[in-house]
Nucleic acid binder design. Structure first.
Lengths: 232, 232
DNA sequence: GATGATTTGTACGTATGTATA
DNA sequence: ATATACATACGTACAAATCAT
């Protein structure tokens, strides 16, 4: 009975909750790039005072999801076309690094799990919906990040993916993109399973490059962004 | 006459100044990992109220320089040995990516500037002090980051270098390390000048790995950390 | 360009949670 | 284990800067 009184589900402080909610809304496009975020408005919406709102905005700005300037209203982060390209470039390098390490370091169990997930997804290419494939896709890349056995690298990759997501629209509408995505994944998995780190890195890099090209990017002042954009 | 009243040197808000000062003190070791950062103490030290102090701490926490927990005093970030290794690993990959792009994209002027800086530094190996070489070293890596023509990648590399610096001690005391560092740089520069991106990436990667091994790391509760640790 | 309305920046007080005797 | 001391989380008030007219 020396159990902590703290609940198992760490609700966190008011600020943390706001950060989670707002980040989710921004990533999912409920709040579009350029949308105003005035402090009193948010305070009223969340039923709190301006103090926690300000701290939440500071944290979101640190994540790159909102832009703040002294004495000016905060807005949901906008982005230039060239910067989005830069972020995809960086993501390609980060995923390549993850794949390289994964090929060297994944345990037998991890390799098996990745292989299993990948094989199971083959059915989705034919029968599944776009959303199903996206859900799988997120899990695939999560396994890849964790397989590199480097928490910091994983954080960089995750954060970059997170920051890019508000500016991507679903790309699987492109004809045949789903099947191509699967065969690109296949190249990555095959290389990892046989421990060929350079091939894995190269496959991961070109996968992101292809995805970037296949994605319909949008940059600054797009009226609506209701589409999901979780997967890559 | 329509000149902005705002001074050319952007002083910024109180919070920004505090962030700069505190980050500098943490990076330079004036405040060592584990040092307490209580809000009232900082507020008195800076002559401000607790509100801006809190926001500054939030920002520093987002940079990874301080650790915050609800209802508990903030402390200068500590780190585990394995995490430090992870950060060096990631830095090696980031610098390798920068070098790869630099080999492909640097303008003639940029290549010339890098070559010039590198050649000039040869004298420092023999005659210069450790501090001189460190100052050069920072400029060298800055040119490398800028040469990749990717602002986002540059930011990731810079931020990582920044975060690692509180936990590194000067490494140039190791016998012959200075000359070795120079020849490692030489391999990078040579590869970039002849546009060999893979060789440049590999040279940059192994340079960071070597530096990591040569550095005397310290992790959690080290009493003093007065040494400079700017260069790599 | 000046003025009023609105919004942000900072100070401070109180309640709540955490650590220490 | 209880109580005391202390630090933080949030609310409220005022000052300063920005924007619109």
């Amino acid at each position: 009975m020396s159990e902590r009184k703290r609940p198992l589900v760490r609700t966190g402080t008011t600020v943390d909750q706001m950060v989670r909610v707002l980040a989710d809304e921004i990533v999912h496009g409920t709040r579009a790039p350029g949308d105003k975020l005035d402090e009193v408005g948010l305070a009223e919406a969340f039923g709190v005072s301006r103090t926690p709102v300000r701290e939440a905005l500071v944290q979101l700005a640190a994540m790159g999801l909102v832009q703040r300037a002294p004495n000016r209203r905060s807005v949901v982060a906008t982005i230039t076309d060239s910067r989005l390209t830069e972020m995809f470039e960086a993501m390609a390098e980060l995923e390549a690094a993850c794949a390289r390490f994964a090929a060297q370091r994944m345990s037998a169990a991890e390799r098996h799990a990745l292989d299993r997930l990948h094989r199971d997804s083959a059915a989705l290419v034919r029968t599944g919906t776009k959303d199903d494939y996206e859900a799988f896709n997120v899990r695939f890349h999560t396994l890849l990040y964790e397989g590199c056995h480097s928490g910091y690298l994983r954080e960089l990759a995750t954060a970059t993916r997170f920051r890019v997501s508000p500016f991507r629209r679903a790309q699987f509408r492109v004809a045949g993109r789903l099947g191509k995505s699967w065969s690109e994944h296949d190249a990555i998995v095959t290389a990892i399973l046989r421990g060929d780190s350079e091939a894995a890195a190269q496959a991961a890099r070109s996968h992101v490059v292809t995805v970037s090209a296949a994605s319909a990017h949008f940059v600054s002042s797009v009226p609506l962004a209701q589409d999901r954009c979780a997967g890559l």
